[in-house]
Design a protein around this nucleic acid. Structure first.
Length: 430
RNA sequence: GUGGCCUUAGCUCAAUCGGCAGAGCAUCGGAUUGUGGCUCCGAAGGUUACGGGUUCAAUCCCCGUAGGCCACCCCA
């Protein structure tokens, strides 16, 4: 029994799963490149205050899920926290490096691990990976549509089907307070009938009542006033324009008046992506929205912005649930084998020469029977084996095609060229 | 943070009523030492998650802890 285990809520991504992840990482980078979003890396920990102020210190993410880090040396007074989401750090970098002097909007992308200290479940981890894009400095609805379409394209190019965007507008500082008052006035007369938990929300965050899963709430929620009927003119206009642009881009969207984002800094457009008919509760594949107030909140000038974050762990789970085959591990082009331990230096030299020529090649360095070595090569899917034997004295080796079961003698000096030719025949022949 | 179910070899799982802890797969080795995925033989692999308790005796019953999963909370 292993003494140590991966910490709760974390896991190892093993060689068998990494190629699938690698494919998604490559897709994310390529998609961001095609859309003109530039890569940025920010630290995985920041000052706690950045998250407390940026995300909102009464949110669950900060109140109970922040992964706080205490420096081991006492002289550091600041408290740090592992990032629970990427936006706050990116906006911090935008401000720190004066990116407001660049052409606006600044389009940025980041892919990396995030940390939340909550109770793990399938699809919910304490360390999880997000692909994130942010466009800072553009107030217009067209950029909203661009980002939502980028997100949707990620899912479809990843191989997921039936992924649609749920869309809503949560208004802004002008119209939301009025709506919240209307909502409270609507629920207030029913306060006595509400379950205890829901009654608390009425005071703290009435919009949360709308996405309650409590069946007793269903009828009440269905008849509740909708934010989209209470938007101020500029917000309503913005929302309409986003929807028109999404139609233009042919992104399937569902209006979801109850959609509320969990983080405080959102305004106007907000959206989440779901796979239709997915089982289990961790179905949200990603989400995002506009956060026009955040840059100012973190000490910058008023700057509109919108972003999107997508959970790679959940995409991997969704792909598996949908039956999409995982990406197989790389197969070596050649394994160099030989029964005589004295040939080890030659095996090493042949392997390194083939690698220098660009092939994936490994020498079998265990001193075991030739049959075992060939078995090992075949089982990891090697295309060819280079077999060292008596012919070595004449400067020759056997080049064996492990799929066809055929082999022929080649001069050592010609090996890279011969392997290359054999590979080509393989591809054409098969 | 709340409630529930679960934990036996690397993996998937057995083990009668509380009575010597097993199989398949995987790993390693062998089948007259120069040729592979099949087959056959063998080996190794366990403090039955961890710590207590009850008992002549605990994988089995009880308590605690840790971890996993499910439903909440919330979210990706």
């Amino acid at each position: 029994m292993a003494t140590f285990r991966a910490p709760r809520g974390t896991r190892d991504l093993l060689p068998a799963e990494r190629p699938t992840w690698q494919r998604l990482e490559t897709l994310a980078a390529d998609l961001a490149r095609r859309y003109g979003y530039r890569q940025i890396e920010t630290p995985i920990f920041e000052e706690s205050a950045l998250f407390e102020r940026g995300i909102g210190d009464v949110t669950d993410v900060v109140e109970k899920e922040l992964f706080r880090v205490l420096p081991s040396r006492g002289e550091e007074r600041e408290r740090w926290a592992l990032r629970p989401e990427p936006t706050a750090g990116i906006v911090r970098a935008y401000l720190q490096h004066g990116m407001h002097t660049l052409q606006q909007p600044v389009r940025l992308t980041l892919l990396g691990p995030m940390f939340r200290y909550d109770r793990p479940q399938a699809g919910r981890y304490r360390q999880f990976w997000q692909f994130d894009v942010e466009a800072i400095g553009d107030p217009g609805p067209a950029i909203d549509a661009e980002i939502i379409e980028l997100a949707h394209r990620f899912y479809t190019e990843a191989g997921l089907t039936a992924v649609s965007a749920r869309l809503n507008s949560i208004g802004d500082a002008i119209c939301r307070p009025g709506y919240l008052a209307t909502l409270r006035a609507y629920f207030e007369p029913h306060a006595a009938e509400l379950p205890e938990e829901e009654r608390e929300r009425l005071a703290t965050n009435p919009m949360r009542l709308l996405d309650s899963k409590d069946p007793r709430m269903a009828a009440l929620v269905a008849a509740a006033p909708r934010i989209t009927d209470h938007l101020c003119a500029p917000c309503a206009e913005h929302f309409d324009a986003v929807r028109r642009h999404l139609d233009t881009l042919e992104v399937p969207t569902v209006l979801e008046p109850a959609l509320v984002r969990g983080l405080d800094y959102y305004s106007r457009t907000c959206f989440e992506f779901y796979r239709e008919g997915a089982e289990g509760q961790q179905q949200a594949l990603g989400g995002g929205g506009r956060y026009d107030g955040l840059v100012e909140l973190l000490g910058g000038r008023p700057t509109p912005a919108i972003g999107f974050g997508l959970g790679l762990d959940r995409v991997v789970l969704a792909l598996a649930a949908q039956g999409v085959a995982s990406v197989p591990m790389e197969r070596p082009a050649a394994v160099i084998v030989g029964a005589d331990p004295a040939d080890t230096p030659t095996r090493l030299r042949i392997a390194t020469n083939l690698r220098a020529a660009g092939f994936s090649a490994r020498a079998d360095l265990a001193e075991r029977k030739l049959a075992r070595q060939l078995e090992g090569a075949a089982r990891e899917g090697a295309h060819f084996a280079v077999i060292l034997g008596d012919e070595l004295a004449g400067g020759q080796v056997q080049l064996r095609d492990l799929e066809a079961g055929t082999q022929r003698l080649v001069n050592l000096a010609d090996l890279p060229r011969e392997l290359s030719r054999a590979q080509r025949q393989h591809h054409h022949g098969a």
